[in-house]
Simulated assay, not measured.
Amino acid sequence: MKKILFSIMASLLVLGGCSQSEEEKPAKNDEVPQIIEAVIQVPETINPGEEATLAVTVRQGDEAVTDADEVKFEIWQEGQKENGDMAEAKHDSEGKYTADHIFAEEGLYYVQSHVTARSQHTMPMVSVQVGEAKAEDSGTGHEQENEGHEEGHSHSHGGEVSIELQASDQIHANKQTALSVKVDNEGEPLAEAKVKLEIALNGATPQWVNMSETEPGKYTADHQFTEPGTYTITTHVEKGDDIHEHTETELTVQ
């Protein structure tokens, strides 16, 4: 009788252990996370030599992002990006991050926020007028900074939507790399879509990079690869309820 009881108890312990292991095993989540949205706010009037408050509001869907890993502003005068300044931003309230900056002289400036939050990175940009200068399309500055990085790797997605990822032929770790994506729908540029890159190395947790539209159907972003290797980049394209496409590309980083 004791032997029978011992066998039953041992079986229950084994079953309990298996059940616990099944419960503790994390469920695989293949869903694409909601995109991080960042909107820059700058004063309508900025005078040279005066301190101006820059702000960016960060949201993920309907939720204010109050736990961003890093938020900073890059500010430069037109044609002088290499001499630009960086200003660290601090969280104010309800997903709004602010920083103060003094624009030394009159001219056309570009303000680009670098937001890293919840494994995503986004870099919206606006142009600002200081003094009597006239602001132009903010996409111009971004186009200038990405000049010369349109050659290299590409991948097309079959069907009505075509996705082509472009990058420099030689990419080096720990250096900013300009990436661009051209998206066509039925042979025409697909404008006003949400485009983001899922970047992973050797199956590690991916980084998410949100792209900005610089011209109809063309989306750009900068990214810094942290180490050499062959990265898998999944380009996700969404627009409304009808378009949700993705394609994979491999990039070698030296």
Results as ranks from 00 to 15, higher is better:
Ile4Arg: 05
Ile4Asn: 04
Phe6Met: 12
Ser7Phe: 12
Ile8Cys: 05
Ile8Glu: 04
Leu13Met: 14
Leu15Ala: 12
Leu15Gly: 10
Leu15Arg: 00
Gly17Ala: 15
Cys18Met: 15
Gln20Pro: 00
Ser21Glu: 05
Ser21Gly: 07
Glu24Thr: 09
Lys25His: 04
Asp30Ile: 00
Ile35Glu: 06
Ile36Lys: 06
Ala38Thr: 07
Ala38Pro: 05
Val39Gln: 07
Ile40Asn: 02
Pro43Tyr: 11
Thr45Pro: 00
Pro48Phe: 06
Pro48Glu: 08
Gly49Asn: 12
Ala52Ser: 15
Leu54Asn: 01
Leu54Gln: 03
Thr57Leu: 02
Thr57Gly: 02
Val58Pro: 00
Gln60Thr: 03
Asp62Ala: 01
Asp62Met: 06
Glu63Val: 05
Glu63Pro: 00
Thr66Asn: 11
Phe73Pro: 00
Trp76Glu: 02
Gln77Leu: 03
Asn83Trp: 06
Asp85Tyr: 08
Asp85Leu: 02
Met86Pro: 00
Met86Ala: 07
Lys90Leu: 10
Asp92Ala: 09
Glu94Ile: 09
Gly95Glu: 01
Gly95Cys: 07
Lys96Asp: 10
Tyr97Lys: 03
Tyr97Arg: 02
Thr98Asn: 10
Ala99Trp: 01
Asp100Leu: 13
Ile102Gly: 04
Ile102Arg: 14
Phe103Trp: 06
Ala104Trp: 09
Ala104His: 10
Glu105Gly: 06
Leu108Lys: 13
Tyr109Arg: 06
Ser113Thr: 15
His114Ile: 14
His114Tyr: 11
Val115Met: 03
Val115Lys: 07
Arg118His: 04
Arg118Leu: 08
Ser119Val: 06
Gln120Arg: 09
Thr122Cys: 13
Thr122Asp: 02
Ser127Val: 08
Gln129Gly: 05
Gln129Met: 06
Val130Leu: 05
Ala135Ile: 05
Asp137Met: 10
Asp137Glu: 06
Gly139Thr: 14
Thr140Glu: 13
Gly141Tyr: 01
Glu143Arg: 07
Glu143Val: 08
Asn146Cys: 04
Gly148Val: 02
His149Leu: 09
His149Gly: 05
Glu150Lys: 06
Glu151Thr: 15
Gly152Val: 07
His155Thr: 15
His155Phe: 15
His157Pro: 05
Gly159Pro: 05
Ser162Lys: 14
Glu164Ala: 14
Gln166Phe: 13
Ser168Leu: 09
Asp169Cys: 11
Asp169Asn: 15
Asp169Trp: 10
Asn174His: 13
Lys175Asn: 14
Ala178Ile: 08
Ala178His: 13
Ala178Met: 13
Leu179Gln: 12
Leu179Gly: 13
Val181Gly: 14
Lys182Pro: 07
Asp184Gly: 12
Asp184Pro: 11
Glu186Cys: 10
Pro189Tyr: 14
Leu190Phe: 12
Lys196Ser: 10
Lys196Cys: 06
Lys196Gly: 10
Ile199Leu: 13
Ala204Asp: 15
Gln207Pro: 01
Trp208Cys: 03
Ser212Ile: 15
Glu213Asn: 13
Thr214Lys: 01
Pro216Asp: 15
Gly217His: 08
Lys218Ala: 11
Tyr219Val: 04
Tyr219Thr: 05
Tyr219Phe: 09
Ala221Pro: 06
Asp222Asn: 14
Asp222Ile: 12
Thr230Cys: 09
Tyr231Gly: 12
Thr232Phe: 02
Thr232Ile: 12
Thr235Phe: 08
Val237Arg: 02
Glu238Leu: 09
Lys239Met: 11
Gly240Met: 09
Gly240Asn: 10
Ile243Val: 11
His244Leu: 10
Thr247Tyr: 01
Glu248Gly: 04
Glu248Cys: 04
Val253Ile: 15
Val253Leu: 04
